[in-house]
Design a protein around this nucleic acid. Structure first.
Lengths: 242, 242
DNA sequence: CGGCAAATTGACACATCTCAAAGCCTGTGG
DNA sequence: CCACAGGCTTTGAGATGTGTCAATTTGCCG
């Protein structure tokens, strides 16, 4: 198999791909796998391949040393995201990646990525950019967790996830599927599950969202972005030569 | 001028550099500049060069759109850090970089980095790794801000900063210079300055640190790391072929 | 229908914020 | 050498945000 169209689209939103670039992307061999909800897609430790999301939602889970139940989810990944591409240069990860709902991923061998970096600098820079966008999202999460209170913080997450999903075409009409339990939202935003529940209720009461199990409908994009002070520039959507 | 030894050391802690690699690093031209406390080293927006820390401490500052005083500091940088190398692939930054205390940096032109990526894949991967380590630190900050309460959170920052400074040789004997006001610590950790003050007092009361203006002495590394549940693996110090 | 996990609610405890005031340090000018 | 001003640190008290515990309700699935 070859690298999925989602990732190609992700790159094309940020830079022009030459015919040669596209051909090279198609030549990278991949292995497809599916996972059920809760399964570990990538485990803690050393790796010789990285995975690319094709379908569903995954998250990076950091657990605390020694203490069983303390965990944080430090990133979420939608189709088109190169989930653990950073493992290509880090070699070893201190977090795992788990599936939220049914998930399909493609694995790319690091050996093939080394070959790419040896001969194709433009694609290399674009892959590098991919990990830099992840880092920009991390900074935005830090910013949000520092500046926003619970409802606004949750609203920020919804804005980001909708925009990211809409950009690659897995969400539209201000509606998305977000298969996260309130307990998992708590691990993402750093609140207790009960407080997440109150934040969800608050967004409902303000008529900003309709939220039924995993189905989220944004009733007022304007209201939600305003509450969250959401500024999407960090998602880096401009097409520029890189 | 050529790239500073601190950065070379930073890389050598993570991978072996060949004679050719070292030579190439020396050939990259740089421009040195110094800044006074509070000055903006890098501004928000597009850039054609990135900067490398030589002396002092800098931080990345995210400001909120429209609202004057809400700001967060999403990263700190010590000598050897390639502060905004991510701008090489992102092209545009949504944060600024400011100096904490007197600072000396070297600027590297992106044009020179492009040349490097065109011909020297090993160094390219190491530069890429540098930004991936930044991202790993971001994730650890997210984790800390999600899991730790104020004193432990502050302790975590101290552990990290000491270790990073000790590794490149600008701190030793469990003593470091950290020219941050309590207001700035507040922007880093997401608390109010008053609460930071109480956290500092708590660490003092527990006999974990002596802290006088910018001089921090860690009285019990063991106690501090235990309180912070500090696990340094994320700083990625193992030497591996990359 | 019953059973389970998740979502929801309420009450209270704890963490953190805000406002206000006092203390401390340092540089400056008399 | 002293007095003062300004910025930072420290402290206190009350308000708000968030966590914990316990119980109830809901929704799904066997």
């Amino acid at each position: 198999m070859a690298i999925s169209d989602y990732f190609t689209r992700f790159l094309q939103l940020r830079d022009e791909l030459s015919a040669r670039d596209l051909e090279l992307l198609r030549e990278i061999p991949t292995t497809v796998r599916t996972y059920d909800s809760g399964e570990e897609v990538v485990s803690v430790g050393a790796h010789t391949r990285s995975c690319l999301m094709v379908r569903g939602l995954t998250g990076r889970v950091n657990r605390i040393v020694g203490k069983a139940d303390a965990r944080a989810i430090t990133a979420l990944h939608v189709p088109g995201d190169f989930v653990d591409l950073h493992a290509f240069v880090l070699k070893k990860l201190n977090h795992s990646v788990v599936a939220f709902g049914q998930v399909e991923v493609e694995f790319v061998e690091h050996a093939d990525l080394v070959r790419m970096t040896e001969s194709f600098p433009h694609l290399t820079r674009l892959f590098w950019m991919t990990t830099a966008i992840d880092a920009a999202i991390h900074r935005q999460w830090l910013f949000a967790s520092s500046v926003l209170r619970s409802s606004a913080h949750l609203a920020h997450l919804l804005c980001e996830m909708y925009l990211r999903m809409e950009m690659v075409g897995v969400a539209r009409d201000y509606t998305m599927t977000l298969p996260l339990l309130q307990r998992e939202l708590a691990d993402i935003l750093g609140y207790s599950p009960i407080h997440i529940n109150r934040a969800v209720r608050d967004l409902r009461d303000r008529k900003l969202v309709r939220w039924q199990a995993a189905e989220v409908e944004i009733l007022s994009w304007h209201g939600l972005t305003q509450l969250a002070r959401f500024d999407p520039t960090y998602i880096e959507v401009e097409r520029r030569p890189r």
